[in-house]
């Protein structure tokens, strides 16, 4: 599935649109990793476990959004945007939304 965060797909023509599709998820890391991240806060640097948490949440939100687009019969999502919110301490909430469209490659001149 093609995804862009601009309004078009370069090199392709949008032939139909199916409206807004969205995917969201809330994920958390276990207490031991939370504790480790708390310790890491003292010295600073990258919190690897939380980076991983964000990656997982983003992947899941995108895959859910794609599932919705597939149900509608779209083959691309344009103008994808992400929103996050701090639902509780130590949890990541990611919301992805975009417009499901049908795109065709431009053939010939």
């Amino acid at each position: 599935m093609i995804m862009t965060n601009i309004e078009t797909i370069p090199g392709m023509k949008i032939v139909g649109q199916y409206g807004l599709v969205s995917g969201s998820t809330v994920r958390a890391k276990n207490a031991i990793l939370d504790f480790g991240a708390g310790l890491k806060n003292v010295v600073g640097g990258e919190l690897k476990s939380y980076t991983e948490l964000l990656i997982q949440a983003r992947q899941e939100a995108i895959s859910r959004m794609q599932q919705q687009a597939q149900t509608l019969g779209a083959n691309a999502i344009v103008n994808v945007r992400f929103a996050t919110s701090a639902i509780t301490a130590g949890a990541a909430e990611v919301y992805a939304y975009g417009t499901a469209v049908k795109a065709q490659t431009i053939t010939g001149a």
Binding site: G23, Q67, Q68, T71, L72, G73
Partner: peptide, 15 residues
């Protein structure tokens, strides 16, 4: 059939 697909999306909530 497009409408049926919309309904399927609404009812089978993946989020």
């Amino acid at each position: 059939s497009l409408e049926a697909r919309y309904i399927a999306m609404i009812e089978n909530n993946v989020n």
